[in-house]
Design a protein around this nucleic acid. Structure first.
Lengths: 164, 164
DNA sequence: CGGTACATGTAAGACGTTACATGATTCA
DNA sequence: TGAATCATGTAACGTCTTACATGTACCG
């Protein structure tokens, strides 16, 4: 469902686009929110077209197919956006490492937290390069805040481990 | 893979346990880190036993089966903990709603953010009840920090929407 | 002419959810 | 005795990843 919504949202936001374009958007602007590769996106667009949520144009250069959101698709998107109840589904390998940290001797735990911290720093660098305007600006603020808090957590945790 | 690690970690942390016990742990202490229901946990334990990572005792009261982590399981857990590179896979419906917020008229966007905020508040209430000691203490600090930053983001976003 | 980016797809298998199904024990 | 909790499982279906497969257009 959410993959559909993400695709409908992108089509609504940036106008008609190909599966390839949408795949790039997933890589470069949606990546801190939802993830999907082309092997998931292409078949989903076909299904969405069959369900009348998007319309596919005839093929362009290099077999390029342009999809446009239909009024029905826009309706579905709008309904989801205003009615979807937040459900907190978390599946974070980093958080799992953090959870199990006390099972390691302090020295190893420190090494693990340092690696997690480096991961957050890399992530911060990526997010810092993204445009702060246009659709996604609120989500980017959220993503940046979460990464920064991750860094704070790492420093705090290192301090605890080193003092304990 | 991560489900395995979570199960091995719990067995290491709390000692021998049944699939039922582990399911409860997932509900009550691991829920902000990883999620799995009994329909996923029971078959996984069977596979892990076949792979020699856990050992199953003979059946106890009410068909209860106790699993114990084996030395091989402990080794696998340790290796993952110290060697696993952080990969940021995010799939958050809430963040997706945030991403697409600019597609809504301001009034509707405000309603959506208020619902997201209420979700974070509910989540905070749940996390606040959890034990701050024992395995999982670091992950709990991380989870709490992330929820609090979510609340800050919601207030900030409401301010932007109301002033814009 | 060779590499890179464009552009699309399929298939197998892993992972996760929902619905269905069963039976024991405890407590009011 | 009926409800709640304990306790385990299967099956169908949906989602996601990885590997495989193919061909076009542009640039140096």
């Amino acid at each position: 469902m959410s993959l559909r919504i993400a695709l409908l949202g992108l089509l609504e936001a940036v106008g008609p686009a190909s599966g390839y374009d949408l795949t790039k958007k997933f890589e470069h602007s949606l990546n801190h929110v939802w993830q999907a590769g082309h092997t998931q996106i292409y078949p989903e667009l076909v299904k969405m077209a069959a369900d009348g949520l998007v319309a596919a144009s005839s093929e362009g250069a290099r077999g390029r197919k342009i999809y446009t959101i239909t009024p029905e698709g826009a309706r579905e998107l709008h309904t989801w956006l205003v009615e979807h109840e937040p459900v907190f589904v978390v599946r974070s390998e980093t958080a799992l490492q953090a959870f199990l940290l006390p099972l390691l001797p302090t020295e190893e735990a420190i090494t693990v937290v340092e690696r997690i911290k480096a991961g957050y720093e890399a992530r911060l660098a990526v997010l810092d390069c993204q445009s702060r305007t246009g659709v996604g600006n609120h989500a980017l603020r959220l993503g940046l805040a979460q990464v920064r808090i991750g860094l704070e957590w790492a420093d705090e945790t290192l301090a605890i481990l080193r003092s304990g």
